[in-house]
Design a protein around this nucleic acid. Structure first.
Lengths: 338, 338
DNA sequence: GCGAGGCGTGTGACCGTGCACATGCCTGCC
DNA sequence: GGCAGGCATGTGCACGGTCACACGCCTCGC
């Protein structure tokens, strides 16, 4: 009567095999959808599995196949909308493909933290790595450790194209800049992200490219740090000069801070100053005034990322193209006053 | 001279043992900091490990110890600031404790998605589970599956206190409401989160408690969905009535949308309407006007969460107390005009 | 002087799964 | 009729660790 010894451990394929009256190998074959199994045998095994609530042991499987079925995400700034959206999409796509996702959040300004996070993920035996910490220094660390697993870096246009997937930052920045120029602005400042962010640099390049293509003289970009706080601070500094009619901020948060500072100074947007952001976070439409910005499809980025990592090479080529961002014109931009 | 066979596989403890001239068990002891090892033996083993770049195989260890050293996070809305901050903190604390973190993002409004995500994590053999999807229905699903592993739910005040860790939402909501009442407001609306969010309900209860404690008549709360878009929509609807002088929004995003709608109607904040939010997202200080809101320490929540999950029971008691939120008064609230 | 006990180390089994190979049976072809 | 070949299934080992136990040596106490 004692069908099931159940010595405290979860049932294994051998337990299932015994109860189903087959060998453990047959159970294994059922699990792996081997073609040569008689339907009735298969059904018997499946019934027993259901009955004893059999769960394959991931560790055992990983041990024998040397495959962890895990993707690692090395991410900084994962509280921000962009990275968070991509992570969500990556996780969903990976799960659908039967993969697990393990994350390591790092402080990208600290080499030690980067190395630790990376070591942590590699120690786990991840089969693929997604890096969402597009700082140049992270790449140096990656290069040093001569990564054995395939990896993709998100949002790092221009660096090592084999391992990069990104929204075309340069094109996006040019869209934003052209929009301002077409409105008639000639004195345009650019507020960049942190200096070592590849993404920030690409947006800056796009800005500069478009400015020079249109023969508009440029001023030196201002180095920011992505935060609304910095945008506010930078805005206050800029307003002591006031030799501009528009500012292109390389993300929406800094644009928010900028607008705050501009209003504090008694100026109106866009009458006195036009502002363009970047990212189109969900709140941007409700800023005051609603922000003109560049939309990036972060979720699509995440999905392609997994496809690239797990898929065969043929699919890769198709997914490798940079995603084209889109300008969303709202109320924070207009023609310059005079 | 061929020190190292290196048959394609990574070196195992047996490889290390051979090169160090000891048994594999001695290597294992070095790995596990067993006290009875002669320092010179230990050093020899460590040297070889360094030399061959030995990495313990996690799967093998997990197999024999039946311990995955992994914590699972089941999360919805993980693109939002609050959950994302907690996740980051959880990951950091877990990593420090030698644990890995695996995430599953779910659509909490879809029972199937919840069950899938949960099954995914459990199939991995997680040793602890953090649920950051504080909808009542998620708890039903959890209860149905009779979870074997310890789990903690974030932000779900009042539900099953043994498995809950949260910022005291009721206290926070009372702070916000009292602030408005003390300013002289008597006609106050409350914009809640989605109906089945426990968090939203707690904030609503805090609002109602404080209103009745102060003998202020209340109107029925308006059911929202956390988004700025909804806040805007709700604001427009509310303004057709205009029988209020203040609104307490149960998060910052909806407050942003509200302010957008109010300004669109030609009203001024806080002269015509006072607004209070909840969360204190980093952008709130730069809204127009800067938002009065209730600050929650999400990171602390994440840290305590891991302590509770991994730590022994003694520590648990101390960490179990709800974290007390803090009112941050900025410029979106003032005395009513009337 | 001898037994107890601790220290440092080694031996072999075992965890749950997949793989290589073996086996028996049935079918079909020359 | 004999043999090739495919199907359905079984046997034993390997994966890389840990655990239980054993062993030899040395120290210490009576």
């Amino acid at each position: 009567m004692s069908d099931e010894p159940s010595k405290g451990r979860a049932p294994s394929i051998r337990d299932v095999a015994r109860l189903a009256g087959v060998s453990h190998q047959t159970v294994s074959r059922v699990l792996n959808h081997h073609p040569s199994i008689r339907p009735e045998t298969k059904q018997r095994v499946l019934d027993v599995m259901e009955q004893v609530q059999y769960q394959p042991n991931r560790a055992a499987r990983a041990l024998v196949t040397s495959r962890s079925h895990t993707i690692g995400i090395l991410s900084s700034q994962s509280t921000q909308y962009g990275p968070a959206s991509s992570i969500t999409a990556i996780e969903a796509a990976a799960r659908e493909a039967g993969y697990w996702v393990s994350t390591a959040n790092i402080d990208a300004s600290d080499d030690r933290s980067v190395a630790d996070g990376l070591a942590h993920l590699l120690a786990q035996g991840v089969e693929g790595l997604v890096v969402i910490a597009p700082q140049a220094r992270v790449f140096d660390t990656l290069a040093q450790r001569s990564i054995e697993v395939p990896y993709v870096s998100l949002q790092s246009t221009g660096q090592d194209p084999d391992h990069t997937l990104s929204v075309d930052q340069i094109a996006g920045a040019r869209l934003a800049t052209r929009h301002l120029i077409e409105l008639g602005h000639r004195n345009i400042y650019h507020l960049t992200g942190p200096q070592d962010w590849i993404e920030a640099e690409a947006r800056m390049r796009g800005f500069l490219d478009e400015m020079s293509a249109s023969d508009v003289p440029t001023t030196a970009p201002i180095l920011g740090d992505w935060t609304a706080d910095f945008g506010y601070y930078a805005g206050r500094e800029l307003l002591t000069v006031r030799d501009f009619t528009a500012i292109f901020s390389s993300n929406d948060q800094m644009a928010l801070g900028l607008m705050h500072a501009i209003r504090d100074a008694g100026l109106e947007i866009p009458r006195d100053v036009s502002i363009v952001g970047f990212d189109d976070i969900p709140e941007a439409a409700h800023f005051w005034p609603p922000l003109t910005t560049v939309r990036q499809d972060f979720a699509e980025l995440g999905r392609r990322c997994v496809a690239l990592l797990l898929g065969g090479d043929p699919a890769a080529a198709e997914h490798r193209d940079a995603i084209v961002p889109e300008l969303v014109v709202r109320a924070s931009t207009g023609r310059p006053a005079f």
